[in-house]
Simulated assay, not measured.
Amino acid sequence: MDLARNVWRRSLFVYKSSLQASLRNGSTGNTSNVAEVAVFSRDGDSGLAITDAGDTKPKDDLVFNALGATDELSSYIGLAREFACDGKVEHPYVDKLKRVQMILFDLSHAISKSIPGKTKPFENKHTKDLEEWILEYSNQLPPPEDYIIPGGGKACASLHVARTICRRAERSVTPLVRDGALDREAQTYLNRLSDFLLTISRIAAKCDERTENIYIPRAEVTEQK
């Protein structure tokens, strides 16, 4: 969290400084510079970055791989929320997805502060919430087929993508858990989150009145012909 805030503040400072300079130039008749303001910093150009724990690590370090996967997951969940809001029927899980994004932000903070042998607790309440939500929505659905092929509308398909990214995020935190740098509950949460995303992808298809795509073995297709 501190790392994210520092990057934001630094970028904001660069933006404000550049904007002020452009506006000063604009006051003398040169207004074109206002449109040329760039928001960037050169930190990290060397391929290194600093974690919240104060360690300088290469950008392909386990910590940054986990941070990147978690950030990507949150971003795609945000896209899935937008697709859900575009539907003709209200999708009941939208607020829950926003809650998940908040927890993923907390998880990113924990990852960035992770130090081997100094594990900080991650609340199991979050996992229990997911389990309750899964049961709630599962009761509204028919039993799942063995193999569901991603599809069934934009909201449904985007949740399937989020589910696969969640699996990658889970894999990326596993080494940190194994090294004692991250609470195992964080890994459990991501494992349960992928189940939740699968469940609500089915809810999304139902809300949008789309048919789920089910894998049919080739032998069965031939027999039907």
Rank of each mutant, 00 (worst) to 15 (best):
D43F: 11
D43R: 11
D43W: 10
D43Q: 13
G44T: 09
G44P: 10
G44Y: 07
G44S: 08
D45E: 11
D45M: 06
D45G: 01
D45K: 00
D45N: 07
G47M: 10
G47D: 14
G47R: 00
G47F: 07
G47I: 03
L48K: 09
L48H: 10
L48E: 09
L48S: 08
A49E: 04
I50M: 06
I50P: 01
I50L: 10
T51G: 10
T51D: 06
T51F: 07
D52E: 10
D52G: 15
D52F: 08
A53C: 08
A53M: 03
A53P: 08
G54N: 03
G54I: 12
G54H: 09
G54P: 07
D55W: 01
D55N: 12
D55G: 02
D55R: 11
T56A: 12
T56I: 08
T56N: 00
T56F: 00
K57T: 04
K57M: 12
K57R: 13
P58W: 10
P58E: 06
P58L: 05
P58Y: 05
K59T: 09
K59W: 09
K59R: 12
D60F: 15
D60R: 04
D60L: 07
D60N: 14
D61V: 11
L62A: 13
L62G: 04
V63G: 03
V63F: 07
V63T: 07
V63W: 01
V63L: 13
F64K: 03
F64E: 05
N65I: 12
N65W: 12
A66I: 01
A66P: 04
A66S: 14
A66N: 04
A66D: 03
L67I: 01
L67C: 05
L67F: 01
L67E: 04
G68T: 07
G68D: 02
G68N: 04
G68K: 04
A69W: 03
T70D: 09
T70L: 10
D71E: 01
D71A: 01
D71H: 01
D71S: 04
D71W: 00
L73I: 06
L73V: 03
L73K: 05
L73H: 02
L73N: 02
S74W: 09
S74M: 01
S74K: 04
S74H: 06
S74P: 08
S74N: 10
S75Q: 06
S75Y: 02
Y76R: 03
Y76C: 05
Y76T: 06
I77D: 02
I77F: 07
G78A: 12
L79F: 15
L79W: 14
L79S: 07
A80E: 02
A80M: 06
A80S: 15
A80I: 09
R81A: 10
R81M: 14
E82I: 15
F83E: 10
A84H: 08
A84R: 08
A84K: 06
C85G: 11
C85Y: 11
C85R: 14
C85H: 11
C85I: 15
C85Q: 15
D86L: 14
D86W: 13
D86G: 12
D86S: 13
G87D: 07
G87I: 07
G87C: 13
